[in-house]
Write a protein that binds this DNA or RNA. Structure first.
Length: 576
RNA sequence: GCGCCAGUAGCUCAGCGGAGAGAGCGUUGGUCUACGAAACCAAAGGCCGCAGGUUCGAAUCCUGCCUGGCGCACCA
């Protein structure tokens, strides 16, 4: 199946070249022409402003350039007409070709809009990557949904995709977790318990303690925090895995940061940076002369007591005013070093594309890591970071703030219990990453036409139910003649159905999975419902041959809805 | 102080160099003896934060400013 914008762009270039050979256009290097879907229907199905872009290069009037391109345009079965309006060239799809696409979609079935452009290429999507200190919260869910949807879209263009979850089960936070569980465990046993000052206060800590009591009784009463940490980690990972599973997110690899210490790659990375002359030892970092200290900064520097730390010359690598620490004065690396080792590890595993989805608060980290990976000579451009803004939950205008540590949060499980998995997927997806997201619980909860989730799914339901009724009445689409689909409503629905491949391509090119959610709602479903209302298939007024043809149309629509919903990780219900 | 992101209909947000600026919700008024009305049709609603600039053409690119969010640790 061809993707028209791509094919048209090629034909436009061909036409320009032919015109040049014929002397209708002067010689110049042909730029990549842009092809778009015009907003207004009377401007055709696709349009290109290329003649206006070429006006300067060709030193001709846009109208004449457009005409020359049209005069030399190659044949294509999908083109019904070509029109020049000023400098614009408008293309209209051929009705005959559109009709044939219905049979083409039916023949493709569930593999409709499956391409192999990137066959043999490997991609990795890293997302969520929350340390196992508590249940998954809504902020992480956004990245997870974006990542999983992107993975599905990448598979649709032929990538072999792995989902990866990066975590750290060492360090201060995990120790606090162990101490918190230990305190709750002793508390439940009626023993003296000192809860750590910055401990985790969530209810789930009690749950873990209770489970431990159920399994081991009081035999851990005097055990150290490590035992509790390990038990808690295992249970929390199970919780995380299970909650993400409820919204269709599964991971192929859980990558432990510790392994980068065990195989020595953290220190190898440091050595490599040192060899490049990018590292030095000093009590304080070097900084630009015009660098202005933040009020609390001297205090923070002084806290190390003047001991020597290891610094990376970040000022050399990118536009910052102060170098950054790689190894603290106590000999422990900061997060930057293992993170860099981790990304090098990804590239060494041979991924052609490694996508990393992070909250915007990690932007500096992402830039630092990218700079270091590039400085070491690795193909850093294979790493693509997608940053997303935060999520706030709102209900009746009230916003709900979240903090894992304080134990005030809405967990993914609570959210799924409340609004259902499909609504979680849709709303988390349907916003551009850089825009701050307000998740309206009231709206997501509604099982009515106010909710886009149902609007989209109901289209699939309507198709499914039509197929059931057809079967009951013994009407089959077998032998249906698609050339009977001649009304504007029918043809416009087909126009939408064949747009899915283009949407997938855009999502992948721009790494913007939210586009498919918008398209599914505002384009696909929005076109489907009025058509369904107007174009009856099984009504007594509809002659049998037309009914067969229309059944084909709606069967094709059902395939496209199912495929679209699947790409978004949502269910395609047979009935509401 | 510096950096990144955002400011588009009453609300939540698309569009990010092309042709009278879009959607959902909300508001107002219509539509089922039909394959499910969780639907459809119609109306009202906008100096696209402000001011300059680039361009044949700017909501979209550049500069400055205003407002909001997030960063600017020997935390991750």
């Amino acid at each position: 199946m061809i993707r028209i914008p791509r094919d048209l762009a090629g034909k436009i270039k061909q036409a320009i070249q032919r015109a040049q050979e014929a002397g209708a256009l002067p010689e110049f290097d042909i730029p990549e022409p842009s092809v778009a879907r015009p907003r207004q229907a009377d401007h055709g199905d696709y349009a290109t402003p290329v003649a206006m872009q070429l006006a300067r290069l060709a030193r001709m009037k846009p109208d004449d350039i457009a005409q020359a391109i049209i005069d030399h345009f190659p044949e294509a079965d999908y083109i019904g007409s070509i029109e020049r309006v000023g400098g614009f060239i408008n293309f209209r799809l051929a009705d005959r070709w559109l009709q044939q696409q219905v049979d083409a979609i039916l023949a493709a079935g569930d593999s409709y809009a499956q391409f192999d452009d990137f066959a043999g290429k490997r991609a990795q999507v890293e997302c969520v990557s929350a340390n196992p200190t508590g249940p998954i919260t809504v902020g992480r869910v956004r990245g997870g949904v974006m990542g999983d949807t992107l993975a599905r879209l990448l598979r649709a263009v032929g990538y072999d995709v792995e989902m990866e979850y990066y975590f750290n089960n060492a360090g201060r936070q995990m120790r606090l977790l162990g101490e918190s569980v230990r305190a709750r465990y002793r508390e439940r046993l009626g023993l003296e318990a000192e809860f750590p000052a910055d401990g985790y206060r969530g209810e789930y800590i009690y749950d873990i303690a209770d489970e431990l009591i159920a399994e081991r009784g009081d035999e851990l009463a005097n055990a150290g925090w490590e035992v509790f940490k390990e038990a808690a980690e295992a249970r929390i990972f199970e919780m995380i895995r299970a909650s993400l599973g409820r919204i269709g997110i599964t991971f192929d690899v859980f990558f432990n940061e510790m392994s980068l210490y065990e195989d020595g790659s953290v220190w190898r990375t440091l050595d490599a940076l040192r060899e490049k002359g990018l590292v030095y030892e000093a009590p304080t970092p070097e900084r630009d002369e015009d660098y202005e200290e933040r009020p609390d900064e001297e205090e923070l520097d002084a806290a190390s007591g003047g001991a020597t730390a290891t610094w990376i010359r970040m000022r050399k690598l990118r536009n910052v005013k102060k170098d950054k620490a790689l190894v603290k004065s106590d000999g422990e690396p900061t997060y930057r070093l293992p993170d860099t080792a981790y990304h090098i590890n990804k590239l060494e595993r041979g991924f052609d594309l490694a996508i990393n989805i992070l909250g915007t608060d990690h932007i500096e980290e992402a830039k630092d890591v990218h700079a270091m990976v590039a400085a070491l000579g690795y193909p850093a451009d294979r790493i693509r970071v997608i940053l997303h803004q935060f999520v706030t939950l709102s209900e009746g205008g009230e916003t709900v703030r979240m903090s894992t540590r304080r134990g005030e949060f809405v967990t993914l499980d609570e959210l799924v219990d409340d609004v259902g998995p499909d609504a979680v997927r849709y709303f988390m997806l349907a916003r551009s990453p850089e825009s701050h997201m307000d998740f309206d619980l009231e709206l997501a909860r509604k099982q009515s036409n106010e909710n886009p989730v149902y609007y989209i799914q109901n289209a699939h339901v309507r198709c499914a139910s039509m197929m059931r009724v057809a079967a009951e009445r013994g009407v089959s689409m077998e032998g249906g003649d698609v050339s009977l689909l001649t009304s504007p409503a029918e043809l416009n629905l087909i126009r939408k159905l064949i747009e899915l491949p283009e949407i997938i391509e855009t999502c992948v090119q721009e790494l913007q999975p939210h586009r498919i959610a918008f398209w599914a709602h505002e384009e696909l479903a929005r076109t489907f419902h009025p058509t369904y209302d107007e174009v009856r298939a099984l009504h007594s007024d509809v002659p049998e041959d037309l009914a067969k043809a229309r059944l084909k149309l709606y069967a094709a629509a059902q395939i496209v809805f199912r495929r679209t919903l699947d790409l978004m990780g949502m269910s395609a219900p047979e009935q509401m």
